[in-house]
Simulated scan of single mutants.
Amino acid sequence: MYKKMGGESWVWNINLTSCLFSFPFFLIWSVINTMSWMQGTTQALPWGTIVLLMTLWVLVGYPLTVIGGIFGKNYANGFDAPCRTKNISREIPDVPWYRSAGVHCLVAGFLPFSAISVELYYIFATLWGREQYTLYGILFLVYVILLSVTACISVALTYFQLSAEDYRWWWRSIFSAGSTGMFVFMYSLFYYFKRSNMSGLLQTVQFFGYTILVCYVFFLMLGTVSFFAALKFVRYIYVNIKMD
């Protein structure tokens, strides 16, 4: 996709792809594991296991990412624009506050979050409490609903943005749907202080460390779904436009 969109710094893109999740994960996990060492708990992984995991990433994970990036660079087709475009960018008019990027992020983040808010309690209670979660069929259904709502709201907000003569939809589509992770983090604050009995430095670091990782995964996942949904929508509405 990067090559198809006209990107030229493919080496930088491969390195960014390989570190986009692994580096934040390793950074937060290192803090949690260090705190576990300091507290003397059995949850802390020994040095040998850490070196083994890093070796697996260096010898397996990163090379596979590089190979996939090279294949994508060599076999990617050129970007097929649905209609002719002008070389000079047109001026973008001012928009009212309810069409701003911040409002779009709030709307696009809250609606997918509302679709999973009920299940979030049971998931948190299972991971950090003593309850057992057995409704995996409903969990899968909620996951499908989450992706569907994200795609639909991305298409709707992209349409509103284009109707306001703002053609810069790509990054806004990613950050708008990705803001769902912010709402998940806000819910985690409510759960920690109002619903859980956790206390102490180690439990706090573990809870918020892993929660930040989950919110980051939500951002990457829903941002990707939103981008491709918006791209499909833009191509669909412009494919039949005739330029004079």
Rank of each mutant, 00 (worst) to 15 (best):
I67R: 06
G48P: 00
F110I: 15
A125G: 02
L139H: 10
A44V: 04
R90Q: 12
G72I: 03
A108M: 12
I116N: 10
D80R: 05
S100N: 10
A125Y: 04
I138H: 08
V118D: 10
L64D: 01
V149N: 15
I92F: 04
T134E: 15
T34S: 09
V58P: 00
L106V: 15
P93F: 13
V103L: 05
V103K: 03
N33T: 11
N74Y: 15
W57V: 11
T126K: 07
R99V: 02
G69K: 08
P96W: 10
M35H: 08
L106Q: 03
W128E: 15
G48K: 05
G102K: 03
N77W: 00
L135N: 04
Y98L: 04
V66Y: 06
G69L: 12
G40V: 14
E91R: 15
I116P: 06
A44N: 01
Q43G: 04
C105H: 04
P93E: 09
T85I: 14
L64F: 05
D94K: 06
T49E: 14
S100I: 08
V107G: 01
G48V: 05
V60P: 07
M35S: 05
T55H: 05
P93C: 09
S114W: 07
V31T: 11
T55P: 05
M54H: 08
I67M: 10
G137I: 03
T55V: 11
T41E: 09
I123E: 08
N87D: 13
I145R: 12
M35R: 05
G129M: 08
G40F: 07
G129E: 06
D94N: 07
Y62E: 03
M38K: 07
Q39M: 00
Q43V: 01
E131G: 07
G40A: 10
W47I: 15
Q132K: 09
Q39E: 15
A101G: 03
V60K: 10
M38Y: 09
E91D: 13
T65W: 13
Y122D: 10
V58H: 02
I92Q: 13
L59G: 00
G40E: 01
G129Y: 02
A108L: 03
P96S: 09
P96C: 00
W37S: 08
L147N: 14
S148L: 14
P82Q: 03
T126P: 01
V95I: 08
L59E: 00
Y122L: 11
